[in-house]
């Protein structure tokens, strides 16, 4: 393989800019999906009537449709009923729509892993529901939820590649663009892979570090 390094150097700024966009969409999308995930999981955990049903429907839709379809709906569908938003906001909301359900399931499995006797002993100490959630359930749930949440973070970062489908100049988009314009397939693809690795590897390493720490802390009575 004979790589054209001049080409790679020349288009490096394109990739940098695209990487910033990818990271930005991923960051806000993931933050928002965590928020959605916490709210949904708590509603489901306490079996709050009605809202809980709505959330189950949301989770089914979110998990069983491809992100690209969700984005198309947000970007091309909603404007038809008067809701217009920028491609970037669309991408963030789309990612949160997808990620919210995954986060919710991970967090919920953590919440449900906390034993009933823990909640009862908090109750018998006169602790309110809110205080029990904050001091007893949530910290213990975290240890169980974190591996799933970390896996979701990585999954969602890789999913950002789909936003090129709504014309956002992310890494994937730039790559396709360059290949289309100049037929420099090898160079463009290598840069794509390298950039994704630069973004993902550190996160992956941090995630496994956190998981290890949590395992050591392994509460278990």
């Amino acid at each position: 393989m004979n790589l054209n390094f001049d080409f790679m150097q020349k288009y490096l700024p394109w990739y940098l800019e695209a990487a910033v966009l990818t990271v930005k969409i991923a960051f806000f999308g993931i933050l928002l999906s965590l928020l959605v995930g916490v709210v949904c999981s708590v509603v489901q955990y306490y079996r709050i009537p009605v809202i809980r049903r709505i959330i189950s429907v949301y989770i089914e839709i979110s998990r069983n449709t491809p992100l690209l379809v969700q984005l198309f709906f947000l970007y091309f569908g909603l404007p038809k009923i008067g809701i217009v938003w920028s491609a970037e906001v669309c991408a963030i909301v789309g990612l949160a729509f997808l990620g919210g359900s995954y986060m919710s399931e991970s967090i919920r499995s953590g919440l449900e892993s906390v034993e009933k006797s823990q909640i009862e002993s908090a109750a018998s100490l006169g602790m309110s529901k809110l205080l029990t959630m904050k001091e007893v359930i949530f910290p213990q749930a975290l240890a169980v939820s974190v591996p799933g949440v970390c896996a979701n973070v990585i999954f969602l970062i890789t999913e950002t590649s789909v936003v090129s489908g709504i014309a956002l100049a992310d890494l994937m988009y730039v790559t396709k663009d360059l290949i289309g314009l100049y037929y420099v397939t090898d160079e463009a693809l290598i840069m794509l892979v390298v950039f994704y690795l630069i973004i993902l590897l550190p996160i992956s390493i941090i995630a496994s570090f956190i998981e290890r720490r949590l395992r050591y802390a392994g509460f278990g009575n």
């Binding site: 034993e115 006797s117 002993s121 908090a122 007893v136 910290p139 213990q140 240890a143 509460f219 009575n221």
Partner: peptide
């Protein structure tokens, strides 16, 4: 109240 299971908060 104290129960049979040791339910101190493990964290």
């Amino acid at each position: 109240m104290v129960f049979q299971s040791y339910d101190l908060f493990p964290h």
